[in-house]
Amino acid sequence: MNANQTIEKLKAMRLSAMAELHYNQLKDNRVETHTADQYLALLTDHQWEDRQNRKIERLLLQANFKQRATMADIDYTQSRNLDKNMFERLATLDFISRKENIIITGASGVGKSYLAQALGHQGCMMKYKTIYTNTARLLKKLKLSKVDGTYLKELAKLLKADILIFDDFGLQSFDNHAREAIMDIIDDRYNKKSTIIVSQIPVSAWYDIIGEGTIADAILDRIVNSSHRINLVGESLRKGKIKKD
């Protein structure tokens, strides 16, 4: 079997990264610089790394983040009640294995969404399936899904996420459909998966926003008692950005 046939067969087996490296090694006459075991390991490691990188890229795309937020770019110099040690512990993602939640509250512009998405990005890098969503848009989508019969399918998709991020939670009072949907999501994920909730509204006011005492109690009991809490304070970070611009 000649080299071209080998490369084509590697491609046919969807081992394109291995095929490309093998081609380059042949072209540069570097194959003989390795033992057989070393060369096999080189090709295998290259294919493995390529697949892992592709998986991460796919997870980042599917997460549907609204901005690229990373742990490395978090600003700890601002006075906004963000404990660096605590947040970096969360970034280890141990809360996922413990099935714990995170609640991030604070006024508009203090960086709540960025922090949540940075944790979500970290999750993708560690190959955890993550979904970022605006709460109001998600609830509208679920309301429509009840009409076309895909509601349970949509709930199943949300349950598969290792990290589910609700952004702008509670900006609007919940109607019956919204309450039931939130209850279904939280109940499905309780003690199974981790949820991050981002809100301008303090947790103490969530009971009234959710409405209907029994459901509100059930939702809050499942979310709050198993959550790490971050309450950001201070002025909007966007103000400083506008001034710099």
Rank of each mutant, 00 (worst) to 15 (best):
N2D: 15
N4M: 02
T6Y: 01
E8R: 01
K11I: 10
M13N: 11
S16Q: 07
A17L: 04
Y23K: 00
L26N: 00
K27D: 05
D28G: 01
N29D: 03
N29L: 01
T33V: 07
A41F: 00
L43A: 11
T44H: 07
T44M: 11
Q47G: 02
Q47I: 00
E49K: 13
D50W: 00
K55E: 10
I56L: 04
I56E: 04
L59N: 12
L61Q: 10
Q62L: 11
Q62W: 01
R68H: 09
R68Y: 03
T70H: 08
M71I: 15
D73Q: 10
Y76R: 09
Q78K: 14
R98K: 13
N101H: 15
T105F: 07
V110C: 06
S113P: 15
S113G: 14
A116C: 05
A116Y: 03
G120I: 04
Q122R: 13
M126E: 13
M126W: 02
M126P: 02
K127V: 07
T133Q: 13
N134Q: 08
T135F: 12
K140W: 04
K143S: 13
L144H: 13
S145Y: 04
Y151K: 06
Y151W: 06
E154R: 09
L155Q: 02
L155C: 05
A156F: 00
I165P: 12
F166S: 07
G170M: 10
L171V: 10
N176K: 11
M183H: 15
M183Q: 15
I186N: 12
I186F: 11
D187G: 06
D188Y: 07
R189D: 06
K192Y: 12
K193S: 03
T195V: 12
V198A: 11
V198N: 12
V203C: 09
S204Q: 15
D208Y: 07
D208P: 04
D208R: 13
I210C: 08
G211R: 13
G211S: 14
E212F: 05
T214L: 13
T214K: 14
A216H: 09
A216Y: 09
A218G: 11
I223D: 05
H228L: 05
I230D: 02
E235F: 03
S236L: 03
K239G: 02
